[in-house]
Design a protein around this nucleic acid. Structure first.
Lengths: 130, 130
DNA sequence: CGATAAGTTCAAAAATTATTGAACATTGAA
DNA sequence: TTCAATGTTCAATAATTTTTGAACTTATCG
């Protein structure tokens, strides 16, 4: 039961990804914003750490939401040192639910208008809110 | 504040339909089953009453879930006598979130396998469970 | 080594959502 | 008009989800 940052986190296999779980995971403003930002700025995985999203909530809340997205099979989380590198499981989702992610992302764009001016422009900052 | 069965129920205008609300409404097994059945057997709107779905839950629970779907803008509910005729707001959803509903419905089919053998085969029965 | 940064875990509290049963309104039909 | 069918409403409860803060682990940087 000892937790290790170097252990690989659990990710559901593609067949284990279910529609109700995915929909429930995305039916939340914070998590929708996370995947929208991931889709837009995640080409270079190196920047997509948990703290990149600190503008969306507290450290603990993000840990919770990111866990939900991971367990739903929507994102992949790769431990790299003390960080977590996040990426969308685009091909797995496309295989499982063809066309679904694309339609979500297209429609979600208008929801996160100023996402370009969030954090990550100075990756080495202490980004805690308050 | 008097409630009348003949009053028109509230339905959001197409522009008022938002993605997080729609996703949250569909992130529930019961409601996903409802829209899946509506999509499959709803060509003829006349059969699509609330009680058609009684196999999915109690009368009161269905009222609740159908209200959620209506307020999210996913279905339209037309009072007809003492009944409610339900239909998917296909074109509104397609306008708002292109491709979304189709991908959901295609993926939801495998979730409601025996839906053909539910109720509605004897429309005039008292269909209360227990 | 000591400090800091990045995230996690846990338990408690807050908030939201879902279910139930009883009572009610409305309509259609005998 | 009385009855049965169809749904709604309300209040209470149950269940689930989210948020918070404190303590902790691990890795990295001087």
């Amino acid at each position: 039961m000892t937790w290790s940052m170097t252990n690989t986190l659990h990710h559901p296999a593609p067949e284990e990804i279910t529609l109700p779980t995915v929909l429930a995971a995305l039916g939340d403003e914070t998590r929708l914003a996370i995947i929208s930002m991931l889709a837009r700025f995640g080409e270079d995985e190196r920047n997509m750490t948990c703290s990149y999203f600190l503008s969306l909530g507290s450290k603990t809340a993000l840990s919770y939401h990111i866990g939900k997205l991971r367990e739903a099979g929507i994102i992949h989380v790769r431990p790299e040192g003390t960080k977590r590198l996040l990426s969308l499981r685009r091909t797995d989702l496309e295989t499982r639910f063809p066309g679904f992610l694309a339609s979500i992302l297209a429609s979600a764009e208008q929801l996160t208008p100023g996402a370009a001016s969030l954090s990550s422009e100075f990756p080495g900052q202490s980004g805690l809110q308050s």
